[in-house]
Structure formats: C-alpha cells, structure tokens
Design a protein around this nucleic acid. Structure first.
Lengths: 248, 248
DNA sequence: GCTGACAATATGTCTAGGCATATTGCGCCG
DNA sequence: CGGCGCAATATGCCTAGACATATTGTCAGC
C-alpha cells in the first residue's frame, strides 16, 4: 500500500482529502452541531491511512473551530460561532491611495503631558502616565477624509515623544514601529459637533462614523485612537466565512 | 530520554512549548518579518524531540499566518497582515436580552413579490427573483432598538414564504433554519430620514449606525438585511489579536 | 560569462507503532 | 438501590524513520 499512494489521482494530500470530506459534511448541514464525528480509528480504516494522518486533518478543523475534541468522548461538530466577522481596517494612507487619490495629512495639535483622568480612561492606563496627544486630519485630494485624535502611551513607546510626524502619519509610524498583539474596536455613529464639522467641512450634526481603537502590546496599552469619518461616505466592509473556503 | 519526558515540569505539550518559544520571538519583535526561523532539524535538536513535533508546532503557526514555509527556502516570519478584526455581530434578540431588557419585535410590512431592479441589486440576485420583503422593528423594553429591512430570496428559502414571523423574528428564524457560509457586511453612518426617525423615535437627521449584510449559501444569496440602530447608542465592539493568545 | 545538470537542503507528507490521560459506562459491593 | 472503582475507549502527544518534492547553490562545460 505504501507504493499505491500515487495512483489515487494527483496531488491533494491525504489529510486534506479527509479534511474536505469532513468539512463538506459539516458545511452541508448533513452533520448538525453536536453530531459525533467517526472516531479516528474508523476514519483511518475508512480512508486507509494511519491514525496520525486523520488526527492531523481533525486537528486543523479544531483550530478552525469547526469541531471539538474531547478525550474518550470523541470528536463532535461544534456549534456555529456567534457571528464573527473579519473586518479589515486598513491603514488610512493606503486606503486613500488605493482609491487613486492624493494622500496628505496635517498635524493639528501635538502635546506631551501627563494623562488626565479622561485620557487615562480612554487609553486604559493610570492617571499621570506620560502621554503624547495628537490630533490630525487626513486628506484625500482636497477633501477631508478623517479626523484622528490619538493618545500614545509614552511609557510603551518613549521614542514617540521625539517624533514630529512630519513625513509619516502617527498611525503608520506606530504600525511600523511597534508590534502589537491586541486591539479593541468600538464602532458607532455620532453627530458632528461644531468643531468637528468645521474641520471636516461638513454640516453640523451630520452623521459620522466613529471608530475608537485601543491597541495593546502585552500588558501595555500602546495607543488609543479615535477616527471620525465624515458623513455616510465611509463604509467599513467586512466579509465573513463560517468555515473558510473548502479548498482552504 | 523517552521516560524523561515527565520530568520537564508539568503538562504543556512539547509542540506547544516550541510554538510558544517561536511565537514569543516573533511577537516581541526579536525576529522581524522576513527573519529565517531555524530549520526543523535544528529546532528538533534544540528541543530534543522528533522533527514531526516541530513540524506540528510550525504548522500551527502557519495556519495563524505568523510564518510562511517554503521548501528548501525554509520558514520565515510572515509580514503582519493588514489589520484584520474579528467583529462579533450577535443575534439582535440575544443582544437585547443579554443587556437584561425585554425583547419584542413588530412586523411592520410583509410582502411577497418579484424583485425589482433595486431589490435584486441589494440582494445580489436577478430581477424578478421571487422574494419576501419584510420590515420590522426591534424593541428593548419600550425603546426602539433597531429598524430592520430585509429581503429574503425565496428561491433559496421557499419555506419563508409561508412563515408569518409571529413568534420568531426573521433574523433568528433564518439563522436557525439556513446554514450559511458567507456574509458580507457594510457598516456606515447615516442621518435618519423622516420615516426612520419617526419609527425609531429619534430626531430627524440624528446619526444612526447602519449595517447592511448580505448572506450567501453556496451560490445563492439567501438574504439581504439593513439594520439601522438609532443614535450613537449602539456600539459595535470588535476585538482583534494579531496572533492569538499565547496560551492557546 | 552564461547555462544546464546535479547535489544538497528543507519542508511536506506519511507510517506504524508507543505510552499518557480523560471519560464513560458498567458491574460489583455495601 | 446507590455509589464507587475499574476497564474499555478515544483522543493527545510523541517517535524515528521513510520517501516526495521544491528550491537553491554550485560546478562544469560551452
């Protein structure tokens, strides 16, 4: 049997064949959540391969959250996750340039200081933490694209204190500089207040999309940013697949 | 050496130990993107285990998008993905009830017909496709929570045509009934028009968060829904982790 | 100096076992 | 009849090899 491997068809590793088989059963709904998946031994016999190969196939499904494995209890089809969506939020500069427009940004204010109560709260740090507070406007051609208000934790990124952000906007600078591993977004609609409306050149009370993001690196909160996109122009697009593409 | 396994410490499988080691190097920035990871053989020697074990550890990192493997070229640290965020959009009923309020919903209009140009467009189907069009209001206690406008493709879900949605709101009904595998969201801010304002009991032009979602099942677009959440009350929360938690 | 052939290398996949461990179900005993 | 303990089971983790395949570097020949 060792040499009969190649005869099956072409390419497509064995473990993926098994994986696809299982996946299709689950995706098609034939195996409802809670259904017991055949044991590794059974599958190994069925697909005529070593148990390890089956195990690898299932292990991957576990990582994708499709099934749950418990010793002795066996493998069961997982309950579908509460709707999780993959949202891509790109770098603003890239976003603007991708749409073929000229990107530019203005630093409006830049201040080094110690975090007030409110700022500490937003950032998720202690009051008095040294911070850099920046407000800046992003432009697409001659149209204001977004208003950014940012708090940078200088304990986490001391070198930001010396950076004037003349060339690179703070967001891109940080992204390139600081590896981070966790971010939390809050997305909601706000009405533009007078100051915002003036800066973004929109009507007062116009609906704006507001994205607040707090970025963590290990235990530190690195930065808090609040992006206000004018009007109903800006659209966040999110795609979602329950279980990834069949082919992977 | 086979029996010395247990002496290391306690629990924590070998492959995960290796994985964590690699992960921490990458997350800490010690290994910048593009850095070559030691070969499987080296790691196997270093951690004193079989190459397969190392392979499993790395394989998992590949699935997480942390590294890229190429034959002969070896394994290299991957470039960080463009910011991808996991957004959880829950079932409205569950969402309201989770906040401890009483959930209720009203069907405002319900109409079976053939898709007009505009409706077909929204749904992503052909003009003339049989559809069920529903508009409904979701309540939290006595406050309007969201306005839902939905188009259901009756070709994909014929049984929806007979459903009156007296007990279960269309969203939950569909979610339970139809397994789906792809969804696309568009999230933006809108100003409430007069009709919307009246229904949601808010000021005209008040900022609202609008979520449009198109749900696919295989080749069919199952449903299109547009949810309008009043004011700046509703907040979408998205969390994100670049590389998963260290422990898992 | 360029190119093609070949060897070295690193991963990709797989095998056929092994022991470890959590869980479950069942049978025995009080 | 109820609770406890044990054996069977299924996964979890691992090994030490094997062959396959892609890629790269090198070297010889033109």
């Amino acid at each position: 049997m060792k040499s009969s491997k190649k005869t099956i068809s072409e390419s497509l590793p064995r473990y993926q064949e098994i994986q696809n088989h299982l996946k299709s059963q689950i995706l098609s709904g034939a195996w409802a959540p809670g259904t017991k998946v055949p044991s590794e031994h059974e599958l190994a016999a069925q697909f005529d391969c070593a148990r390890m190969t089956v195990s690898k196939a299932i292990g991957s499904l576990v990582e994708k959250g499709l099934v749950v494995r418990r010793r002795r209890a066996g493998t069961v089809v997982a309950a579908p996750r509460s709707q999780e969506t993959v949202l891509e939020i790109h770098d603003i500069q890239a976003e603007v340039q991708a749409s073929g427009r000229l990107y530019r940004f203005d630093i409006q204010t830049r201040k080094v200081g110690k975090a007030t109560r409110e700022e500490a709260d937003k950032l998720g740090a202690e009051i008095g933490t040294p911070v850099l507070i920046i407000s800046c406007v992003h432009w697409a051609d001659t149209v204001p694209y977004a208003l950014e208000e940012r708090i940078i934790n200088l304990e986490a990124v001391p070198e930001a204190g010396d950076e004037m952000f003349l060339e690179v906007p703070p967001g891109s600078w940080l992204l390139a500089k600081i590896p981070w591993n966790e971010a939390e977004h809050r997305i909601f609609a706000v009405s533009a207040d007078i100051a915002t409306a003036r800066i973004l050149k929109i009507r007062r009370n116009a609906a704006c999309l507001c994205i607040e993001r707090r970025t963590r690196r290990d235990v530190y909160n690195v930065t808090y940013v609040r992006l206000i996109y004018p009007g109903d122009q800006h659209v966040l697009v999110a795609r979602f697949q329950t279980h990834g593409t069949a082919g992977r």
